[in-house]
């Protein structure tokens, strides 16, 4: 299993680089995760990340992409500009959310 070195912490990642344990997340982790995605975090990124964190805290899953766009007022293309791997594999990963599964 892959590992992520954040400061002196060693965090476990899954095969796709998602945090194995969502509770490990903090802002410092986000920065390190962002480097694996080759993203420099700006305020715009943080808006999305914070939105995802809040949503996840309340609902236990990532939001539907459509809902995320509506709630953040961003277009899909803008999300892709911010997170080249897309809302799921990019934004959710940096925000420390787990991968979505099932028939989706």
């Amino acid at each position: 299993m892959a590992e992520l070195k954040v400061g002196d912490r060693i965090l476990l990642l899954d095969e796709d680089g998602f945090l194995d344990n969502a509770a490990d997340w903090d802002e410092e982790v986000a920065h390190v995760l962002a480097t694996t995605e080759e993203v420099e975090l700006t305020q715009e990124h943080w808006d999305i990340i914070n939105y995802l964190r809040e949503y996840y805290a309340e609902f236990g899953v990532a939001p539907m992409v459509r809902k995320m766009l509506k709630d953040t007022g961003k277009k899909q293309s803008e999300i892709y500009t911010l997170f080249p791997s897309g809302p799921g594999k990019g934004a959710c990963k940096i925000a420390g959310l787990p991968k979505p599964t099932g028939c989706v």
Partner: peptide, 27 residues
């Protein structure tokens, strides 16, 4: 195995808890 575990506890593969379902429906 992920969806199986999700479905077993939360009722669906995606792992949506009740409030998440309601929120999606609302949307």
């Amino acid at each position: 195995s992920g969806p199986v575990a999700n479905c077993y506890i939360k009722g669906n593969h995606v792992g949506m808890e009740p409030q998440a379902i309601m929120s999606n429906i609302e949307f």
